[in-house]
């Protein structure tokens, strides 16, 4: 069943915001303004938006090193996320965390990590401790994370204790510069869920509506009790990190991946369903203005003071 037009436009707005945001970060990286390592979600917006829009205010989200999209989809202020990525005092973590360690508890986003797999078990404990709220805990990670030991220990434990965790694997076919086939003989991480007795599904991440529907069904199962594993097959349209020359994949392959651009695909789908070009353009202009304002605010934000380290 197709979703309502207003919901469809909301999904588009959220994805377009992530795209614009990430393009801004990429531009800043090229200009040498961004400290540290930056991993962009360009191409993976459908996963972030489709899954996060299936959650509500009771729920909590964890993520990994490619987390900007998940936090924005959750509703964080783009200006404060940009400020964090620049290491400024107005950042969501006061400039202490940076791109790989985003947290914004106000929007139910409990953390990202620079250690692959590092937040997966945190989702289990949080879910266990929050069972009375009826909330689920969703944890995003990549296909590469499914080769870590902590992933397997966590799936086993979540299943054994029937924890309300939504495992959300964004399978982009790469861990850094190495293709999935060289990382694991198991092409799809959801196969691991099967053996641990966790219900699972795979969905095409370039189709945000399909992700949203799959995530809604998944969340319903988790609320009914017990974990669920949703694998979203996405195209990583940027390099592993921003600035990655991507010598390990051909220009043709990179170009082919763009056919799986979820933002473009959903725009076309909405237009086909009768949404006027002006309405789509209006959303884009509004988001562009929002990102422009966020960008100015973030760049003007002051550096943090050393005293922040003494807090708490």
């Amino acid at each position: 069943m197709a979703i309502r037009v207003e919901d469809g436009i909301a999904l588009y707005r959220a994805m377009f915001l992530i795209r614009r945001f990430e393009e801004t970060v990429a531009e800043w990286v090229r200009a040498g303004l961004v400290p540290g390592f930056v991993h962009l979600a360009i191409g993976q917006e459908g996963a972030a938006v489709g899954v996060v829009h299936a959650l509500d205010g009771r729920d909590v989200v964890f993520s990994g090193h490619r987390a900007h999209g998940h936090l924005l989809a959750r509703g964080a202020d783009p200006a404060r996320v940009l400020a964090e990525i620049l290491g400024r005092a107005e950042g969501v973590c006061r400039g202490l965390g940076g791109s790989m360690h985003l947290v914004d508890t106000a929007v139910g986003f409990w953390g990202a990590t620079g250690v692959v797999g590092g937040t997966i078990p945190l989702a289990l404990g949080a879910a266990w401790a929050r069972q009375a709220t009826g909330g689920v805990v969703a944890v995003f990670f990549g296909d590469g994370a499914s080769t870590t030991g902590i992933f397997h220990e966590s799936l086993n434990l979540a299943s054994l204790w029937r924890l309300p965790v939504l495992f959300c694997c964004e399978n982009n076919g790469y861990a850094e510069f190495t293709a999935r086939a060289e990382q694991s003989p198991v092409a799809y991480a959801r196969r691991f869920a099967e053996v641990y007795g966790i219900p699972s599904a795979g969905v095409d991440g370039s189709d945000v509506e399909a992700v949203f529907e799959a995530a809604r069904a998944a969340v319903a199962e988790v609320r009914a009790g017990g974990p669920y594993f949703l694998e979203v097959e996405v195209a990583r349209l940027s390099g592993h990190y921003e600035g990655d020359p991507q010598g390990y994949r051909s220009a043709e392959e990179q170009a082919r991946q763009w056919a799986r651009d979820p933002v473009r695909r959903w725009r076309d789908a909405l237009a086909e369903r009768g949404v006027a070009e002006e309405a789509l353009a209006a959303v884009e202009e509004e988001v562009a203005r929002q990102v422009e304002a966020a960008r100015e605010q973030a760049q003007k934000a002051p550096w943090p003071d050393l005293t922040v380290l003494n807090h708490g």
Binding site: P35, G87, G95, L96, G97, L306, V308, L309
Partner: peptide, 16 residues
């Protein structure tokens, strides 16, 4: 090093 988690922000990072 100061006994803190290493902060991300460049001026703080340098200071620890």
């Amino acid at each position: 090093g100061r006994p803190v988690a290493i902060p991300f922000s460049p001026p703080l990072e340098r200071a620890v």
